[in-house]
Nucleic acid binder design. Structure first.
Lengths: 350, 350
DNA sequence: CTGAAAGCGCTAACAT
DNA sequence: ATGTTAGCGCTTTCAG
């Protein structure tokens, strides 16, 4: 049998209450007995059973972290910072890889409830509002969202301004002189916001992004390549492609290589996220950066506040994305040849 | 108050023992009462408290996963497959990012013990044998190691043959005709094994790898670059560099770029791991692949076997690494010019 | 086939 | 300053 608080109490000639108090630094204990108890604990290498503690007290000091795929660097970065901040605040985190599967998400959520985690953080993921985010399903479990904004739900949220991110990508390409662009998006809501922002910027210039220049699907390099080929087959062929994450953007670069199109000379590519991947592609990827680390730590702070009841008002923190210029974007061929004559007019407009 | 097994029992007009039995499918319950109980459970959206279950029964069905850094794709891949296999077997996993910090490792290990996880998996990490791996410190907690072999310890282990991996890297470069090489290694034991294997292959050809052509440090792109510059400054300058992981290898490629050396024409680079990073560098990286996914799932199987007491004999599973040829290696300049005259002799020997 | 009761290891009033 | 005691929510004999 493992040694319990009872064994310690007996050997130290005190009650279990006393032992509990020295362990948790609660109540008033004389220096002498505290020392004695500590000694016995040390001697037996006693480790309190936190399961029992959790059963009795209010908190399990455990958080759940649900994300689509741990092996994806974007989620990895956030997960790392979540774990780190959680540890600082005394919480451990159970990780749940949901593979973009709504059923798995729901199943995991139930499991986390059974394990009595104090709260759960959801990174991105499928559109599964009713199953786990609905008031009823949650059953009072604190939930916080990162990189997945659902404006209609009163839930703590941290994400970037996706609309603005898309807008920025388009502005950048427009300023370079691109007029004919394509876009590849992941099949999640945030990506559609980016599409809206992208379109908005184009419309401000009197341009429209036709649906045939838009492709949507799961975020894999393969898909990025496939979709890029599809877009590049259109006439007229786009001179720039905006992908809603770095993975898809890498696929675009691959497609360009396969067609002997040079990036950025023949095709400009803009990604999203600014994961480590963006720094090592050839050429390195111009991308819209999300502050992943900040997002992770912030969401933990918000969630823990809610758990501790310190702050009952829910917050939606919208961070500003940032355009990171690297080597995958450039003015389009025609413009370069014509000294930017086409691009000029739009600048005068503001 | 949350609804408990007691509430269910009362409403279903049975004892809590009966409810427990239908939940766990144990004992013999009439179809009628089972149905009734299930109904009430459903109605109240009751979720059993697994903390209480764990307190009573033998298992918490939770595993700990300690790794240096979640944001590193190599660990991410393994973590993902660990999580996946664990879920299949009914276990959840608590993740612990230790940042190559021995103290943090020890601290986390204690925490996991307190949370009464059924076992812990350690991926790579610092050399911290006594603190957490020593018989005494473990206190009976099942432990399993991935990507970190400690031959002297009776612990379930899954890793690749690092010596062979290093040997293979060297063989490849030798066959291409390289005679003057450098090596950059991470400061972990596995990397040193790779160094040994690398040296062995060289020695078989009558060559030696001088210490001044070897650099060691933490695995960051920055370090890879720094060390590569250092090695390339030596006279004679190496025509190939073997780095013990993809991250360092990327740094090497960067250094080459900074010096206007073309990879692979002026410098060949071999990495290790075969993470996603290796596929997107420019040029894509020739690397020694570790079967990350297999390693993750296998270690979970081993650990769970030990936990369940099905298999008390510890196993050390040594997987064979694989040379993945991509674009970062090529015969050295002199050899190319001389039609491989230097490389020929070594082939005849077998 | 079902129920009563004794824990699992700990916390938190409430006494002393 | 320390001890008593009643749970926390569940599993598991052991009776019936």
């Amino acid at each position: 049998m493992r040694t319990t608080i009872f064994d310690i109490a007996k050997e130290a000639n005190v009650s279990i209450a006393t032992v509990s108090k020295v362990i948790n630094n609660t109540g008033r204990i004389s220096e002498k007995t505290r020392k004695k108890v500590l000694e016995v604990i040390e001697k037996h290498n006693y480790t309190p059973n936190l399961l029992a503690t959790a059963l009795t007290s209010k908190y399990s000091y455990t958080l759940g972290l649900m994300m689509p795929n741990l092996a994806n660097p974007f989620f990895g970065e956030i997960a790392k910072s979540v774990e780190d901040r959680a540890r600082e605040l005394g919480f451990s985190v159970i990780m749940c890889s949901t593979e973009y599967d709504a059923e798995k998400e729901a199943w995991y959520f139930t499991l986390l409830q059974k394990k009595r985690v104090d709260g759960v953080i959801i990174i991105s993921g499928v559109e599964n509002e009713d199953a786990i985010l609905g008031q009823k399903a949650r059953a009072g479990m604190p939930i916080a969202l990162v990189a997945r904004d659902i404006p209609t739900l009163p839930i703590n949220t941290v994400c970037v301004d996706d609309f603005l991110g898309g807008y920025m990508a388009a502005r950048h390409l427009l300023q370079l002189g691109h007029r004919n662009m394509g876009m590849i998006l992941e099949n999640i809501r945030a990506a559609r916001e980016r599409l809206r922002g992208f379109r908005k910027a184009l419309e401000e210039e009197g341009l429209t992004l036709e649906d045939r220049y838009v492709a949507e699907g799961e975020a894999t390099i393969e898909n990025g390549k496939l979709f890029a080929h599809r877009l590049l087959d259109k006439k007229p062929s786009p001179t720039a492609i905006f992908a809603t994450n770095d993975i898809l953007a890498i696929g675009v670069i691959r497609a360009a290589n396969e067609r002997n199109l040079k990036v950025p000379d023949d095709l400009s590519v803009v990604g999203f996220d600014n994961t480590i991947l963006a720094t090592i592609t050839d050429p390195p990827l111009t991308t819209i950066a999300q502050p992943m680390s900040l997002m992770g730590s912030t969401i933990v702070d918000l969630l823990v506040q809610e758990i501790k009841g310190e702050e009952t008002n829910k917050q939606r923190i919208i961070l500003v994305p940032e355009l990171v210029l690297r080597g995958s974007t450039k003015e389009p061929r025609q413009v370069a040849q014509q000294e930017g004559s086409l691009a000029q007019p739009s600048f005068s407009g503001g």
